[in-house]
Amino acid sequence: MTERRPLVQINTSFPGTEVAAETAATIASTYLVFRKIDSSYSKSLLKHVEQLFNFADTYRGSYSASIPQVQGFYNSSGYADELLWAATWLYHATGDLDYLKYVTEQNGSAFANWGSPSWFSWDDKHAATKVNLVLNVQSCQNGLIWVEEWNCLQHAMSSAFLAVLYSDYMVTSQTEMLYCDGKIYKPEDLRSFSISQADYALGKNPMKMSYLVGYGGNYPQQVHHRGSSIPVDADTGCRDGFKWLYSPDPNPNVAVGALVGGPFQNDSYMDIRNNSKQGEPSTYNSALIVALLSGLVSTSSVPKHL
């Protein structure tokens, strides 16, 4: 593809707290991976994490206000949750109680909405910050967690990831059970729930379709993705892609590893390229299923038969 890809930036005049804080959270988690195997690299990561967080917190402002052209696609509902999310990761990385106080005291009452349910998504980090397990919710007819019709797998994968994460915490902390909404759950219950969501996404569903592109023998062929649907040698501009958008042919480039939006609540899926509600993949979808599958195969509470 030969179209222009202009770059934009956030700075002190045009802040983007969500972007800076989310990046800080990401690098803080990377620091935790490398701190025992590469001390020099991990120290550099931690230095930049703290700089990014200070920038995000000092120059508060929504990135979608500073960069208005994104408002029609990824308009932010607010930056407060990203600040809490980043501070939580910084506390986990450093053990500095100031970051814990930032979340629980200084900004918790103003930003956290502790008593209100929320979802872990690209735009909302409250559930992940609280490590709040969401089990008592609507589902598809065959068991997939279902919140809304636009990109439903985002919520299913995030709920499953938080469940497997918390099940691991229960095992390592020797917490035998969790009491939630009048029901008792053991670590294996949470893990079974997580496995059921992963199984559904990978093909154990009424459509017998893997929603992870490239996995299995039956996966979406008309993914709503420009790089996947336009031939690699096409000489095209930004507005020239409609002939491929409405083409009945499968995508010429397979977006291996992309997790699409997923089914409607009746478990149906329409594999049509302009069906962006169901067929649009995203980096945050793929990140969630990678996290979920990694947790299922590598954490301390993995059953022996896996």
Results as ranks from 00 to 15, higher is better:
11 N>W: 07
25 A>K: 02
18 E>A: 03
289 I>T: 00
86 A>N: 03
109 S>T: 06
283 T>Q: 14
219 Y>I: 01
158 S>Y: 10
7 L>C: 10
142 N>Q: 11
108 G>I: 04
126 H>Q: 09
215 Y>W: 15
96 D>P: 01
284 Y>D: 11
152 C>T: 12
31 Y>L: 07
298 S>H: 13
212 L>K: 02
224 H>R: 06
68 P>A: 14
150 W>Q: 03
36 K>D: 15
84 L>E: 00
191 R>Q: 06
235 D>C: 04
242 F>A: 14
192 S>R: 12
180 C>K: 14
84 L>S: 01
271 D>A: 07
166 Y>R: 12
22 E>R: 05
145 I>Y: 15
290 V>Y: 13
238 C>S: 11
19 V>I: 12
118 S>Q: 02
3 E>G: 09
239 R>Q: 13
21 A>K: 01
169 Y>Q: 10
77 S>C: 09
273 R>Y: 13
28 A>G: 04
153 L>A: 09
248 P>K: 07
101 K>E: 06
227 G>D: 06
37 I>Y: 13
127 A>T: 04
230 I>Y: 09
60 R>G: 04
125 K>R: 06
3 E>W: 15
25 A>S: 05
246 Y>C: 07
263 P>C: 04
113 N>M: 10
46 L>Q: 06
289 I>Y: 07
146 W>F: 13
212 L>G: 00
169 Y>W: 13
31 Y>K: 07
243 K>N: 13
83 L>D: 01
111 F>K: 03
152 C>G: 09
97 L>V: 13
270 M>C: 12
140 C>Y: 12
90 L>K: 05
146 W>R: 00
151 N>P: 00
238 C>I: 12
273 R>F: 13
95 G>R: 10
138 Q>M: 12
240 D>C: 05
188 E>K: 09
57 D>P: 01
85 W>P: 00
174 Q>K: 12
254 V>I: 11
266 N>P: 02
